[in-house]
Amino acid sequence: MCTVSFLDLIQQGLLQLDLRVDIIWDYRDLFIRGIYYTIILSMSGVGIGLVLGLFAGMAKLAKTIWIRWPAIAYIEFFRGTPLFVQIMLLHFAVLPTLFGRSPSPVISGIIALALNSGAYISEIFRAGIQSIARGQMEAARSLGLSHSMAMRYIILPQAFRRMIPPLGNELIVVLKDSSLLSAIAAPELANAARITMGATSRPWEPYMTIAIIYLLITLILATLVSRLERKLDYGRHSRS
């Protein structure tokens, strides 16, 4: 009795919404450009974030306090403050002060996502490196390999394999968080939705559309990551 009337209510509501797909069709260029920039922004962000994270993660494991301390400060700042605030600070304050003029929202966006994801990725690297047993480092050093050679040939290749699932996770998080860049008018998906809603006064169609697009992209990414993980599972094929 109760459920029936509830379903009725939803049906009635949906009818009242009168969803109009043609709105999205009219603004399709905006959404296609949005998909393109969402992917570019998050991929570049995570790409640069990987390099930042590698160095910050290794620096955090360093014995010297002067190497360790800046890494810790960087990591804690970017993990401990909201990404939204970081984007605003970078785009409107830090970068204009450094370069004398406002950079394009795409550049600011990539820098913000890179710095933010670098802080999280450094923790993934640190955990990955520490998860490789000490014996591996000792064996490498006992053969006369230097610390950096041991890292490069022995520790990092093994750590990287263990880091793929959390790194894939991070990529998905960044992809979703890139929607915050609509606040500085970066031409990505959330910005497309915001413009469409502003022009048509219709919130449902644009935001439902980008929700579905985000979902599709993250599902595809998750599948790719788990495939990569399986592919790098060394030794399985040689078992005989």
């Binding site: 047993a133 591996q136 000792e138 064996a139 490498a140 053969l143 006369g144 093994q158 060394y234």
Partner: peptide
């Protein structure tokens, strides 16, 4: 240190082969 270590081979209890 690396120059000394390369002149001394070491075998560990846990083998420590490189699994990758």
């Amino acid at each position: 240190v690396d120059a000394i270590r390369r002149e001394l081979g070491m075998v560990f209890q846990q083998f420590n082969l490189f699994p990758h």
